[in-house]
């Protein structure tokens, strides 16, 4: 780890101003990605702005037809929350699949969406559920928020405050873990809200999380795993590495989508 300055703001406003003042500074939320990369000297932010003392960033509430989760809410909290389990059980299940118990008790939803790791789980949930990312400045629809590998629509000085998920009728996540890291090698989140069906894929896209429109179209005819039979996803634009070729990952997208649909129907 290289030396850095450490800041502990009390308000979002202070955090945003520190972020604006410290070029290349980083927000520290749960630190489950940032701290290991700093320890390995792969990241060297000159300043860390720790959100842990900012009031009101953590919590889960139902607001009308929306489930609103504070940016500093831990994965374990989402996984075990009765409110989430009632409103969008597939989201609670997904949170329970992130990392391991230690990661789930430190890692946060805000950190996950702001980092936009191409193998992270939350971006798929946000995209499939049509979430809105609420920052200190504005509200950004998930479709416009995740812009590339570790890239988001966040502007300098912009801090994620909440994520709002519209309540859907059916939703589930199926994840095929990378055998080594156990991050998603292919994770598919499927959500149905009325006639709107969205399928988001993480872990596989060369440019990060994306919507599988071919699968969405097929599921619009009938929301059943059988609707996906015979649909093979193209391998172009899909990641390849020592664990999985683009072809294998592409194959797994359909398999995981079917499993997600099966799980969603079962709920």
């Amino acid at each position: 780890m290289y030396a850095f300055s450490y800041h502990q703001p009390k308000t979002v406003r202070q955090a945003a101003s520190l972020l604006a003042k410290n070029e290349d500074g980083k927000i520290l939320a749960g630190g489950q990605t940032l701290l290991p990369t700093m320890k390995q000297r792969l990241a060297a932010p000159p300043a860390l702005i720790d959100l842990s003392k900012v009031e009101g960033l953590s919590g889960i509430e139902l607001k009308g037809r929306s489930l609103v989760i504070g940016a500093m809410t831990k994965h374990a909290h989402v996984a075990t929350s009765e409110i989430v389990r009632q409103a969008i059980p597939g989201l609670a299940d997904m949170a329970g699949l992130i990392g391991d118990p230690a990661v789930r008790n430190r890692g946060t939803i805000g950190g996950s969406v702001a980092n936009n790791d191409p193998a992270a789980d939350y971006p798929a949930a946000c995209l499939a559920l049509g979430a809105t990312i609420i920052t200190n400045m504005r509200k950004v629809p998930a479709d416009q928020f995740f812009t590339g590998l570790f890239e988001t629509a966040l502007e300098p000085g912009e801090v994620v405050v909440k994520v709002a998920f519209p309540i859907v009728s059916k939703a589930a996540y199926a994840k095929f873990r990378n055998p080594a890291s156990r991050y998603a090698m292919v994770g598919v989140f499927v959500a149905k809200r009325g006639s709107d069906i969205r399928v988001a894929v993480t872990g596989a896209g060369a440019n990060g999380v994306f919507r599988a429109t071919a699968l969405e179209e097929a599921l619009k005819k009938r929301f059943s795993p059988k609707s996906l039979d015979g649909i093979s996803m193209p391998a172009t634009g899909i990641n390849g590495d020592i664990h999985a070729s683009p072809e294998y990952r592409a194959h797994l997208i359909t398999v995981m989508a079917k499993r997600a649909v099966t799980a969603a129907i079962g709920k």
Binding site: Q40, P179, A180, S181, D241, I242, H243
Partner: peptide, 11 residues
């Protein structure tokens, strides 16, 4: 060495 950490070396 591609498998230089547990991110890629599978135990």
């Amino acid at each position: 060495l591609v498998t230089a950490s547990y991110m890629d070396y599978c135990m």
